[in-house]
């Protein structure tokens, strides 16, 4: 079993583990940020370059450092490997510039974007980016394309992470969309404006790290930080039926898959659960969902609403509540 040291912390992992996975096993304090990697999607990652790390020692056998920064999501660990992430100035610099590249053509329309508040690009740029832009060129924009009744595609915001393409390829039975054109003209689109219409297409919304793919049934209903996520489940013959319900008052505004600590979907859900079951009666409520990532909703106020006197931020174990008491 190879041993790898990341930012001075050593861990023993199974063969074939990537640096990123090993870092996540150690904990969030050494885990590189990611945009295009998604643990549940095969062959994802490698594109965005935010998870670049410096390999200062290749392995026990070949201790030479790797000449270039490596994408940690696609580099396997070797025994004795030493990796610099937050401790490496080269990495910090490179990451800063990757953020700059990603934001170069991003519209920064967060005030009107539904993703704001749970946007991975927001988190990334807040943590790793610079406060000012160095470009005064007009940003790239795209015409809106109608891809069906459920999903809104807003290509201008896209960072080309390829996650939605991989969802369509690996989870749905027919991919009708993909990346068109080249370079900074690349865009996500469907084959001759076909509608994306299959049972699992909604997962594209969940895996989109930015606001390029949003839920048409939720658009402009509410800022996400005014909603309360509740874990719930139902018996579904297509998917696991394990979801998060996003409440505003008594109303379910939207249904999404559950996301793990790294903002990646745990189990993909079907479109019936996502779009058609918006009554509390359809679901068995389990309790408040904990939001891990660093945006506004992660204050997790809603988790402790039952007993105000015990009010604490970031309660790790969710308090179980009786069904219907929300």
């Amino acid at each position: 079993m190879p041993k790898v040291t990341i930012d001075g912390r050593t861990i023993e992992v199974a063969d074939g583990t990537t640096i990123l996975q090993a870092a996540r096993m150690i904990g969030p304090e050494v885990a590189p940020p990611t945009m295009c990697y998604h643990s549940k999607l095969k062959s994802s990652g490698g594109y965005c370059r935010t998870c670049l790390v410096e390999v200062t020692k290749g392995s026990e056998k070949d201790p030479r450092p790797m000449p270039k920064l490596m994408a940690s999501c696609r580099t396997h660990v070797m025994d004795g490997m030493e990796v610099g992430n937050f401790t490496s100035t080269k990495v910090i610099e490179a990451r800063k510039s990757v953020v700059e590249f990603l934001l170069l053509n991003h519209p920064l329309d967060c005030p009107i974007c539904d993703q704001a508040g749970e946007c991975q690009l927001q988190d990334l740029s807040y943590e790793n980016g610079s406060a000012k832009t160095r470009t005064d060129f007009e940003r790239r924009t795209f015409e809106k394309i109608d891809i069906g009744s459920k999903i809104q595609l807003h290509m201008t915001r896209c960072i080309l992470c390829y996650r939605c393409v991989k969802v369509a390829e690996q989870i749905t039975d027919g991919r009708v969309h993909g990346v068109f054109n080249r370079g900074d003209h690349s865009e996500i689109s469907t084959y001759i404006n076909q509608a994306i219409d299959n049972d699992f297409s909604g997962n594209m919304i969940d895996v989109c790290p930015v606001g390029a793919l949003t839920d048409k049934t939720f658009r402009f209903k509410s800022r996400v930080w005014f909603t309360k996520p509740m874990q719930a489940h139902r018996n579904c013959d297509k998917c696991s039926g394990k979801v998060n319900l996003w409440y505003k008052g008594e109303e379910v505004l939207r249904v999404t898959g559950r996301k793990d600590q790294w903002g990646e979907v745990e189990e993909f859900i079907c479109n019936t659960c996502r779009f058609d079951k918006k009554n509390t009666g359809d679901w068995t409520i389990e309790g408040p969902a904990h939001i891990h990532h660093h945006s506004v909703i992660s204050a997790n106020h809603y988790e402790v609403f039952t007993k105000p006197q015990e009010f604490k931020l970031n309660v790790v174990t969710p308090i179980t509540i009786e069904e219907g008491s929300n």
Partner: peptide
């Protein structure tokens, strides 16, 4: 290079266009 970048990874996709501009 801007024209020929495949657009897969962000530094090349955005950087080549930026340099040209």
């Amino acid at each position: 290079y801007h024209h020929e970048s495949c657009g897969q990874c962000s530094p090349c996709r955005e950087g080549t266009a930026w340099m040209e501009k």
